[in-house]
Every structure is written in C-alpha cells, then in structure tokens.
Design a protein around this nucleic acid. Structure first.
Lengths: 164, 164
DNA sequence: AATTTACGTCAGCCTTGTTGACATTCCAAG
DNA sequence: CTTGGAATGTCAACAAGGCTGACGTAAATT
C-alpha cells in the first residue's frame, strides 16, 4: 500500500497496461453477455429485451421515460422491444394514478421467470469470476468500473445501487 | 487477507453484490466505448471498424482468419468492414509469401493515425479510471475480467497479452 | 385556453450481425 | 499430377436494433 513518499509507482498507467485493460474489457464483455444471449436466442429475444427486463425487474413500476434515461436509447427503439414484451405477456403496463400520462412497467409472473433464467445464467458466470478472483479483487473491479462510467451513468448506477 | 479458518467471508458473493457487478459492467462498457464512438461517427466508421483497426495495430501482419477468430464474427461481416478500410487507405493488404492464400493486414500511415486518435481517446478514460482507483484496484479489475472470459477468449487475450 | 409533457406510432434509413452459395487460389497429400 | 481441403473474396438476402423526423393523443400545467 505504502509507496515511496512523493512518488507513487505509476507503472500501472503505461500505455501497455492500459491496452491490456482495454482488451480485457472487450473480451470480458463478450463472456458477460454470452450466457444470456444463448437463452434469448432460443426464444427470439435479443439483448435489448434482456436490458428492458432487467431494469423493470430492478425497479418495478418504473416509467417509460425512466427506462429511456437508463438505457440511453430512443423511445422508438425501446417501444419496439417493449411492445413485443407486452404482447407476449412478459411485461404488464399500468396507467399512472397520480399522473395518468405515465405508464408504469411491471414484470408478469412469466416475465419474472424469464428474468430469473437470464440473471441466473449471468450471475453464475459473475459468481465464478468473483470467487476465482477473491473479495479484494472484486472491490477493485467495482472501483475501476465505476470510475470508467460517464458521470450521468454513475448517477443512474448509484441510484440503483442504493435502492432509491 | 486472512479469514476465519474453514470459513471465508462470502458476503461478496450474494445475489445483490453480483447484480451490482452486472450493472457496473453494463454502465462502464457504455463509458468505455463512448469516446471512440464519438470520433468514429464523424468519419462514418463504426465500432466494427474500430475493432478491426485495433487488432491489426496490435498484431501487424495478422491474417483474415486470425482476425475472424479474435473478433468472433463471420467472414462476410468482417469483409465488409475490411473492404471499406482498405478502399479508404487505412489498411494495407499483403499476399502471404510463405502461404500465398493468406492475406496479411497492416495499417497504413493514415490507418495508424486513425488508430492513435481512437486509442488515445479510449486510453485517456481508462487512465483516468485507473488513476482514480489505484494500482491495487486495477489488479483486481484485471483479475475479475480475465476470470469472466470464455476460455477460448482467454487464450486469445493471453496470446496478445504476452505478445506472441 | 394554450402549452408542455409522456407516450405511441408510422415511415425510412444505417450498421452490423447472420446464412447460403459460389469462385478462386493455393498448399499438401496421395 | 491430380485432388481435396484451406483461406479468402464476394453476391444476395435477411434480421436485430440503433437512429431521425413527423404526427397524434391524452393529460397535466400554466
């Protein structure tokens, strides 16, 4: 932990180290999405559906606007995905009671089951990676990822993290 | 480091912690690609072009097959991207001397410049994140990412990492 | 009453992935 | 020398999932 006073060890900031980090992100993200992708494929859904389902599960009753902000896509793009999920009974829509313009989104029982199968697969890999790397490494992992986010996304992340 | 014997602290493996890790990956990957994406947009290239340029830079003289294996796409998909890069003078092709079926790929001066501008942008963010998190965290970051890869991808990653 | 907000939808476009088919070139084995 | 298979290129067609722009409607706000 302690470095020579007045001069930390900065070898970890070389271009070479950074390139390794970049490639690690690239390859790891592939692994990260591989398992849910396989499941989604069998039911004619894509990653976009997964993301919607994930965040609706995470924040039940969230509005369309909210989801747009989190996912960072256009309403047309989200709507396409959302429509299929609703039509196929994965997501339930509820008109807002306080503000009737808003549509609140919930997973149905069927949708919750889908979410579980997807997140089980993804968590299994994440768990294996966590276990292999150990708690210390996991803490570092989270720190670096958080620092890599755009500030607005960091807000979204923290909001979810703290359970607001 | 040392835990109670026979029972490590496994709190970091809870579903809640794993969910945070999953969302961290999601939001961080967005940041990870945001800067190069902005540059690419201005020159009518996409992420696919970036990936090709990156790995050709990383392994000059690599073959099409090699690139296919690393990128994990079909040759038709890669070829489309590769052709525009060649046509626009970013990439130079050389017939193999030992095996003339192979096409060895190199960046031109122009392509190298493109690569530099893209990786400068991406490295800047990575460097900031690394610096903010510190060397200890970076080590953990890399450990978790590596553990998250598919085994075949880990091979590709290590091959590059060690400079084979 | 007028404006703004939240949402939905139609139409069209682009990138980047896919499959399938086919041609060429060339190495290597029989 | 011939032949099979490997490496590559290319054509066509399609799909997912981004995007913009335009328009409509209902509800809240001013």
């Amino acid at each position: 932990m302690a470095e020579a006073p007045g001069g930390e060890n900065l070898l970890y900031l070389t271009d070479e180290q950074l390139r390794k980090g970049i490639e690690a992100m690239f390859f790891a993200y592939r692994g990260f999405t591989a398992d849910p992708d396989r499941i989604l494929e069998t039911m004619d859904y894509g990653r976009a559906h997964h993301r919607a389902v994930h965040f609706i599960h995470r924040s039940p009753g969230t509005t369309v606007s909210n989801l747009l902000a989190i996912l960072g896509v256009t309403k047309q793009s989200l709507n396409r995905v959302l429509r299929t999920l609703i039509d196929e009974g994965q997501v339930r829509v509820e008109k807002g009671k306080v503000d009737a313009r808003e549509r609140h989104l919930y997973l149905t029982a069927k949708g919750a089951e889908l979410e579980r199968s997807l997140s089980d697969a993804q968590r299994a890999r994440m768990r294996a990676a966590y276990r292999a790397a150990g708690p210390q490494a996991v803490q570092g992992f989270r720190q670096v990822l958080e620092a890599m986010m755009d500030p607005e996304m960091r807000v979204q992340y923290s909001r979810l993290k703290d359970g607001t």
